[in-house]
Simulated scan of single mutants.
Amino acid sequence: MNEENKDLIRTIKQNFTKLSKGQKLIAQFIMDNYDKAAFMTASKLGDKVGVSESTVVRFAGALGFDGYPKLQKSLQELIKTKLTTVQRVEMSQDYSSDFEVLNKILKSDIDNIRNTLEDINPKAFEDVIDKIASAKKIYIVGLRTSSAIADYLGFYLNLILDNVVLVNYGISDVFEQIIKVSEEDLVIGISFPRYSKKTYEILEFAKKQGATIVALTDSHISPIATLSDNTLLAKSNMASFVDSLVAPLSLINALIVALGMREKDKIKGYFDKLEHVWKDFNIYEEQA
Rank of each mutant, 00 (worst) to 15 (best):
63 L>S: 00
159 L>A: 12
191 S>D: 05
104 K>W: 04
54 S>V: 14
176 E>F: 10
200 Y>S: 15
264 K>G: 06
132 I>P: 04
238 M>V: 09
217 T>R: 01
55 T>E: 01
152 Y>L: 08
222 S>M: 05
85 T>C: 14
189 G>F: 06
255 L>H: 01
237 N>E: 10
33 N>S: 11
123 K>D: 13
191 S>Y: 04
21 K>T: 12
113 I>H: 02
135 A>H: 07
34 Y>C: 12
270 Y>M: 13
170 G>M: 08
97 S>D: 01
207 K>N: 08
157 L>C: 08
251 L>Y: 03
170 G>W: 09
284 Y>A: 07
142 G>L: 10
4 E>K: 13
111 D>L: 15
2 N>K: 14
22 G>T: 04
118 E>F: 10
158 N>H: 12
93 Q>D: 07
95 Y>A: 08
6 K>C: 03
78 L>K: 05
32 D>R: 01
263 E>R: 09
191 S>C: 09
109 D>F: 09
109 D>Y: 05
186 L>K: 02
244 S>P: 05
92 S>N: 07
224 I>E: 03
250 S>C: 10
193 P>F: 04
147 S>T: 11
46 G>I: 00
22 G>F: 00
49 V>T: 00
70 K>D: 07
32 D>Y: 00
58 R>G: 05
129 I>G: 11
152 Y>M: 11
276 H>E: 08
239 A>W: 01
181 V>I: 13
191 S>H: 03
170 G>L: 12
23 Q>V: 01
270 Y>Q: 13
74 S>V: 02
211 A>T: 07
6 K>N: 00
107 K>N: 15
39 F>D: 15
131 K>I: 14
216 L>I: 15
127 D>M: 15
51 V>P: 00
284 Y>C: 08
276 H>C: 07
205 F>A: 10
270 Y>N: 10
175 F>I: 12
154 G>F: 04
252 I>H: 06
132 I>N: 02
45 L>P: 01
2 N>R: 13
88 R>P: 06
48 K>F: 00
186 L>N: 03
170 G>Y: 08
49 V>E: 01
156 Y>V: 07
225 A>K: 08
170 G>V: 12
176 E>I: 10
135 A>S: 12
160 I>V: 13
71 L>I: 14
8 L>W: 03
209 Q>D: 05
177 Q>D: 06
266 K>N: 09
15 N>Q: 14
271 F>A: 09
84 T>S: 15
31 M>K: 02
204 E>R: 12
61 G>F: 07
275 E>M: 07
165 V>Y: 03
143 L>A: 08
42 A>H: 00
158 N>T: 14
69 P>L: 12
210 G>T: 05
43 S>H: 11
131 K>E: 15
237 N>S: 13
64 G>A: 10
225 A>T: 08
252 I>C: 03
221 I>M: 02
204 E>H: 11
172 S>E: 15
233 L>Q: 01
144 R>A: 09
74 S>P: 02
269 G>K: 07
267 I>W: 04
72 Q>A: 15
143 L>K: 05
20 S>K: 01
98 D>A: 15
28 Q>L: 03
159 L>F: 08
39 F>V: 13
